[in-house]
């Protein structure tokens, strides 16, 4: 008998006004799966992220997280405590890069795993960033590629069991992509759900969920 899936979508219907996004949509994600969502723009990739993270309320159907319905706000909070999500617009903080990186570690849920300086520096170096230079810069002055790498570095440092990434490699060069894939996709226990148009990333994900009708 298989164990309870990490996430299971059952008969999801969702629409924005008249626009139907999901109609009787089902999916299953098991613990440890590395999933990429496939679909044209407007097919509901970001909406699915938002439904899973509880930012949109389900209209019909249900999503179960470890067997518990996300209709229950407690389940949503439990999921969020075990996840991290990198939004596509990379609007993840203001002020110095150092403060942006450390802010999630001020949360009650992560206070105990606050990384030390050397762990932060090593992670940044892994993504081809020079710690001394970048940590004291203003986040708003960074290029899209640098922001993306900072966002991915936060996900790596948080080391959550469930990571959601929206187009994580769209502004990265080949080396950074390869590092991101090594750091995020090579952990058996971690579940990763992503959207991507990048063949390199898609190839490294072992499971595809097709959202096209």
């Amino acid at each position: 008998m298989s164990s309870t899936p990490l996430l299971e979508g059952r008969n999801i219907h969702f629409r924005y006004g008249d626009e139907v996004i999901f109609e009787n949509f089902n999916f299953v994600i098991h613990k440890g799966d590395k999933v990429v969502l496939k679909g044209e723009s407007g097919s509901g990739k970001t909406t699915l992220f938002r439904l899973i993270l509880g930012f949109e309320s389900l209209q019909q159907g249900d999503i179960l997280y470890q067997g518990e319905s996300l209709k229950n706000p407690e389940t949503i909070r439990n999921l969020r405590k075990n996840s991290s999500w990198l939004p596509q617009d990379l609007n993840i903080g203001t002020g110095l890069v150092e403060d942006v990186i450390l802010f999630p570690f001020t949360f009650q849920a992560h206070k105990k795993i606050k990384p030390n300086q050397s762990a932060i520096e090593a992670t940044l170096q892994n993504f081809g960033l020079t710690p001394d230079e970048i940590l004291q810069k203003s986040y708003s002055d960074l290029s899209t590629g640098q922001r993306q790498r900072i966002g991915l570095a936060i996900c790596v440092l948080l080391n959550q069991p469930f990571i959601l990434l929206d187009e994580p490699t769209s502004a990265l060069d080949h080396d950074s992509k390869s590092k991101a894939a090594d750091l995020l996709l090579n952990q058996n226990k971690r579940t990763l759900l992503s959207t991507s148009h990048d063949p390199f990333w898609v190839e490294r994900c072992e499971k595809v969920i097709d959202l096209n009708p």
Binding site: N82, S84, P87, N91, I92, P104, Q108, A109, I154
Partner: peptide
Amino acid sequence: RERFQFFLSCGAS
């Protein structure tokens, strides 16, 4: 909105 949601998605109350 996305910044606020990013914090929530990282376990913030």
